[in-house]
Design a binder for these strands. Structure first.
Lengths: 235, 235
DNA sequence: CAGTGGTCTAGACCACTGG
DNA sequence: CAGTGGTCTAGACCACTGG
């Protein structure tokens, strides 16, 4: 913890998360924090602004810094039983790869417009089924452009998670998402893999994830059986 | 423009947006900006940090401040023709109210768990159809709890937009979203209103919007005909 | 009115990047 | 090495909230 503002930030954050300051409570004033830590006010403000950025705290001029109710963690895809609706835990999900991740070119035409760099380089292609309680709920086709990622190690995904692998090995994080949604009748292959009736409704999603690397996007096409579970997303 | 940092922020922002500084360009150094505006470095940094917060700029220690590629504007619901995929303009949408907005109680059971305050107070209820090019694409049922909103003026929504009305009249802004998605077969009423075949697939979405007011949520239930258009969302 | 956070000054030392 | 942004000090005046 090399910096003063980080110390103040961490202290306040853990006090909030432990409930020492409850939702709606006022944090100590800037002046009190200056005195407690023997630091300048600018430094205290730097710590408080971090908390504001994380939406843990709102500052009100003339009054003080108020602890905010927690915002839901970012969930891009969660699987919920109908009775759970929201707020409850999501279901555990198992992944089955239909075939090992492979390196190929982007198919043409592709469902999102691609940059020249993406088109002329290869991509990592992943086909998998996600199951919950042994019920298949999602068929997922994912494309990771390799023009900006050197030496992608196909040998394994950490925890079977592409996003965790990208984060830990390459420091690539998801920072945003565009998606296009529609309801379709399941074709024969999809119905077979998802173990639902031919022509029953399936949720289809095209996704383009933005990352912290400029111009690096990750693309997915998803087919979801929503007869037993709903698909959740949040930000 | 009362504050120095706002002046610097606005100047840089418009220079970026006009293309004076292109993506990947370096902005003037903090020192240069201090001299140009005759202000302290802390003030220049405040301006630059605003740009970082908006993801227009990334700062690199030892190098400078780099202009970032624009991120897509937040779109909670957009309607896209299939050929457009993404990146193109969204379709113009018309609203038709099935009946005038009314004040009532929340139905029981409700599709999200409600707080006591919400349950014991009334809510504004809105039923509308959204059309694009005279084709109905979405049936929307929206519930706005009134326990924290005083004197809601039912007389009219600004531009027919609930969100714009909340923002301009009550300074309530949407800051987040949870949603649950599924594909269903259209029942008779829904099929009739959306002008689609009975039992054809429809996209159904439950939504809970978070606002900048703690514990004030806005709820929607949406039925979307996705045979001609896809439903987009982004953050 | 006293107390709060918001803006600002004019410096300082440091860590990092590139030549 | 000179130049960059990151952290920090010890003040100042201001706008806003509530009693």
């Amino acid at each position: 913890m090399p910096h003063h503002y980080q110390k103040v930030y961490q202290d306040l954050k853990s006090q909030i998360q432990s409930g020492e300051y409850a939702i709606g409570d006022y944090l100590p004033t800037e002046k009190m924090l200056c005195e407690k830590y023997s630091i300048a006010r600018v430094t205290v403000r730097q710590a408080l602004n971090e908390l504001v950025k994380e939406q843990l705290v709102t500052r009100i001029q003339g009054k003080g810094s108020v602890v905010q109710p927690p915002r839901p963690t970012l969930a891009l895809l969660s699987i919920k039983g109908f009775s759970e609706a929201v707020g409850k835990e999501n279901r555990k999900v198992t992944n089955i790869f239909l075939k090992p991740p492979s390196v190929s070119n982007f198919p043409k035409p592709f469902f999102y417009p691609l940059t020249d760099a993406e088109q002329t380089h290869s991509c990592l292609y992943i086909e998998r089924i996600r199951l919950t309680d042994e019920t298949p709920v999602m068929l997922e086709f994912t494309y990771v452009p390799l023009d900006q990622i050197q030496d992608f190690d196909r040998s394994g995904l950490i925890n079977n998670s592409l996003f965790k692998t990208l984060e830990e090995k390459y420091k690539i994080e998801i920072v945003g998402l565009e998606q296009d949604l529609r309801a379709l009748e399941a074709d024969e292959d999809t119905a077979f893999l998802l173990k639902i009736k031919h022509q029953s409704p399936v949720l289809h999603i095209y996704r383009r994830y933005r990352t912290n690397v400029p111009f690096l996007f990750i693309y997915s096409s998803l087919f979801c059986a929503t007869d037993k579970f709903a698909i959740g997303s949040a930000w």
